[in-house]
């Protein structure tokens, strides 16, 4: 039986639990082992950064965690749910309700206004567009947008503003896990810092877990824990950047 802490079971406090996770792309001589037995736990309410050199498997790992890519072997449970036991449609529906995404290139739909972009996850989950946009406006206020900016198209916004929209979009449907792929790599240092402050403040609310893939060592300070990857394996998990041992391959 699991222990209870403040009315929540200990298992429920674990957002992501991966054991001996493997993933190989291609076959035969062309096969590339992207994940070679990854063990990782992400707790609810924490911001975990996934760092490592290019090609070490970070993006593959968050793809598996986010349910956009099927693993080959091992276990991976997201809030006690296993994607490999779900149908394709159930996996998609689970993602729609439980996962928020922040992408390196923002991926905002250029023909939708800021508020409409933010309301998209709600529309996907069945909310009427008018109600979704109304709800989106509420969260856009929290990321510092005024009425004029809410009606702007993404192309009218700066990179930092676009990423704030992307964060609002990731949060609007109150998912339990947010995965961020290089959220600051397209931004200057100061803007990247502000974006991370926003993610740190808003993203971790309501016991939400965040997994942030990054190369940017300037934002390590926002991490509750840092998991370093090399050659498809988690080589160390530390509480702060100062505890990170030098990697064999340098990060980009």
């Amino acid at each position: 039986m699991s222990a209870t802490i403040n009315g929540t079971t200990q298992e429920a406090r674990v957002a992501v639990n991966c054991k001996e996770l493997t993933k190989t792309f291609g076959t035969g001589n062309a096969a590339v082992k992207a994940l070679r037995g990854v063990n990782l736990e992400v707790r609810s309410g924490e911001l975990l950064m996934l760092v490592g050199p290019s090609g070490c498997g970070k993006t593959t790992l968050i793809s598996v965690i986010a349910g956009v890519l099927r693993r080959d072997e091992g276990d991976c449970k997201i809030f006690d749910q296993d994607y490999n036991r779900m149908s394709e449609d159930d996996t998609t529906e689970f993602r729609g309700v439980n996962i928020g995404f922040v992408f390196q290139a923002f991926n905002l739909i250029p023909s939708l206004t800021t508020a409409e972009n933010v309301g998209t996850p709600l529309i996907i989950n069945g909310m009427k567009p008018r109600a979704a946009v109304s709800k989106a406006r509420e969260i856009l206020v929290q990321v510092g947008f005024d009425e004029r900016m809410m009606s702007s198209l993404p192309t009218d916004l700066s990179g930092g503003q676009q990423q704030r929209v992307a964060i609002a979009r990731a949060l609007v449907h109150q998912p339990r896990l947010i995965v961020c792929d290089e959220p600051t790599s397209a931004l200057d240092g100061e803007t990247g810092h502000k974006i991370m402050e926003l993610l740190h403040t808003l993203g971790r609310g309501e016991g939400r877990a965040l997994v942030v893939v990054t190369h940017d060592s300037r934002i390590y300070e926002f991490a509750d824990r840092i998991a370093a990857m090399e050659d498809g394996r988690i080589t160390q998990v530390v509480d702060s950047a100062s505890q990170l041992k030098p990697m064999q391959k340098k990060t980009d």
Partner: peptide, 16 residues
């Protein structure tokens, strides 16, 4: 395609 992929990732099923 990138945006269809984004919608798919965000929970839009193939039928949608």
């Amino acid at each position: 395609l990138r945006y269809f992929g984004t919608l798919k990732a965000m929970g839009a099923k193939n039928g949608m």
